[in-house]
Design a protein around this nucleic acid. Sequence first.
DNA 1: TTCTAATCCATAATCGTTACGATTTATAAC
DNA 2: GTTATAAATCGTAACGATTATGGATTAGAA
Lengths: 136, 136
Amino acid sequence: MNSVKAWEILKNNGYKRTNKRERLLQMFEANDKYVTARQLLDVLTVEYPGMSYDTIYRNLSTFVALGILDETELSGERHFRMQCDATEHHHHFICMDCGNVKALEICPMDMLGPNLQDYQVENHKFEIYGKCPQCH
Amino acid sequence: MNSVKAWEILKNNGYKRTNKRERLLQMFEANDKYVTARQLLDVLTVEYPGMSYDTIYRNLSTFVALGILDETELSGERHFRMQCDATEHHHHFICMDCGNVKALEICPMDMLGPNLQDYQVENHKFEIYGKCPQCH
DNA sequence: TTCTAATCCATAATCGTTACGATTTATAAC
DNA sequence: GTTATAAATCGTAACGATTATGGATTAGAA
C-alpha cells in the first residue's frame, strides 16, 4: 500500500483530499512501523497547532475500514501501520522498541488439522514480539 | 490450576487468606472462561456491597504475576481466566460470545524455521476467535 | 490479646478513546 | 469565479477502563 493507492480508495469512496489526511498518509508511507494515535498527534501538532484527537482517530478509523491501514493492540494501546501489499496472507514479528515489523510467510491456521471441527472460526491473531537486530 | 494450588502459591508468597480472594478464586475455578474485571465486580458486589475496583484489579494483578491467572486482551478489555495445568505449551480458541476456550495442541513457533535469525524473540501470541458449538 | 503489615474501601486521578455542536473547508454545480 | 452543501475539522467535554491514594479495617504472627 502507498499513498497514491490510498487516495484512489479514498476518492472512490467519496472522501475528500485534505491536508491532514495527506500528512497522515505520508507519515505512514515514510516508515513502515506501528505507531499510536498520540505519536501521530505529537508530530502533526507541530505543523498544525490545534490539531485534535478527533481528527486523528476519525481518519484512522476510516483508513482501517477501507483497508488502507492495519491495526493491532500492543500493551493496551491501538497501533497502526500501512497495510501490506502482499497478496499472500501472512503474519508479523513486531519490535517492541521501535515498532518495526518483519513479515513471516507462515500461518498457523495451515496446521490446524481436524481441531475446531464444530467451531465457527471468525478470526485469528498470530504475532511474535521482541527486539529487532537494530534494537538489541 | 485450582484454588488449592493457588492458595499454596499465595501463602508461599506471603499473601493472606481473605474472603474476597477466596471468592474470586472460586469464580475462576467454577468456570473456565475469560471474564473482565467488571463481570467479577458485578457478581462480588451482590455478596459484598461496597466492593471496589481496587480490590478486584489489585488481586487480579497479583494472581497474574504469580502465574495463577492468564490474561488476554479481547476487544480492548483485559480478560482473565484460570491458568491451564497443561505442562505442554499450547494456545487457545476463544468463543467471543461466552468466553469459553478450547485448547489447541499446536504452536506456530515450531514452524518458524530460520526466520528471525538475528531477532530477539521475547513473546508470541496465537489465538483463534469465533463461536463455539454451543453459541452458533 | 496485641501488634503490624497486608488488605480493603471510598474516591479521585489518569489514560486512551469517543462524541458533540460550532466552524471551516473541499468539491461540484452554476 | 461564485455559491451551495456535504464533509471535515476544531475545541472541548464526556466516557469507560484502569490506576493511584489515604485512611480504616483485618488477618495472622508474637
